[in-house]
């Protein structure tokens, strides 16, 4: 079946509005279902109850929790960038290194962080550094892989051009390889930023006294289900905003690296 869309501006605004309208419809349906079947709050709280719960919590408390989570997520994200990109470059330069490190990275990636997190907390204490490490473990791999992929995406001809000039590897890397890797690095960053939030939340589930993950867990254990949902939505919005800011910074600083819309 094909939906026929109106032409021109109407079509554009419909396309813009469609996801919002759909979202709104979903919320309405949810509200109606909750009321019609008189579902108890601990089964599924109605959106109105969630909103109410959200405003019952003081704003300053929200911000304390938000900041705790954000701090860990952003620190983990930043540390991950600082380590992953140089590692990817080093792996590109040396086949030995890449063969040595790659299996280790795969092992790290395929070990569930949720299972490792308690061990890290036990070994390193329940402070920010261990939470940041947990976040890093989650974000590191996609960043290394996307950077390495991007670096290998460089056209062979340009690498040969550089070789035929006997350019030092350092200049070859900066002048050619890194720029070619930028679109890939950014797709890695988009994945990594959402994983960073997940990492921070997982760490809070294991041991924390503040943070949105902690808040959700704590609310659930006291059967304040609407409040837990409010925390969840807040977290989702924050996560979405972070994802968008990665996209915006790509648009701002590297507009050429975005896929072109339409053709000339």
């Amino acid at each position: 079946m094909r939906l026929t869309l109106p032409e021109g501006r109407a079509r554009a605004s419909l396309l813009m509005a469609a996801p919002w309208l759909f979202f709104l419809a979903l919320i309405l349906l949810w509200e109606l279902v909750c009321r019609a079947f008189a579902l108890p709050e601990y089964v599924l709280p109605a959106p109105s109850a969630i909103v109410e719960a959200f405003f019952k919590v003081e704003m300053s408390r929200w911000f304390t929790h938000l900041w705790a989570t954000l701090k860990v997520a952003l620190m983990g994200f930043a540390a991950s960038i600082l380590v992953a990109i140089p590692v990817a470059i080093a792996m590109m330069r040396s086949e030995l290194l890449s063969r040595t490190l790659y299996p280790l990275l795969v092992v790290i990636q395929s070990t569930p962080v949720v299972a490792v997190a308690p061990l890290i907390i036990v070994l390193m204490g329940s402070d920010d550094p261990s939470r940041v490490l947990i976040t890093c473990l989650l974000t590191f791999f996609p960043l290394v892989v996307s950077t390495a992929t991007g670096i290998n995406e460089t056209p062979e001809e340009l690498v040969e051009l550089s070789r035929s000039l006997d350019a030092p590897l350092r200049r070859e890397t900066w002048q050619i390889r890194i720029p070619y890797a930028i679109p890939h690095i950014f797709s890695g960053l988009r994945v990594a930023i959402t994983l960073a939030i997940i990492g921070a939340v997982v760490a809070e589930f294991v041991a924390a006294e503040e943070g949105l993950g902690y808040f959700i867990q704590f609310s659930t254990s006291f059967f304040r289900i609407p409040q837990a949902f409010a925390g969840l939505f807040f977290l989702a919005v924050v996560s979405l905003l972070l994802f968008k800011s990665v996209q915006w910074s790509q648009q701002l600083f590297f507009p050429w690296s975005l896929p072109r819309k339409g053709s000339h």
Binding site: L158, L161, S162, L165, R171, Q175, P179, F254
Partner: peptide, 18 residues
């Protein structure tokens, strides 16, 4: 094989930069 992000001048300059 010009670098799509770089203007013509920067592309032509590449060997010198390298």
């Amino acid at each position: 094989t010009l670098m799509p992000w770089a203007r013509v001048r920067k592309n032509v300059r590449l060997p010198l930069d390298l």
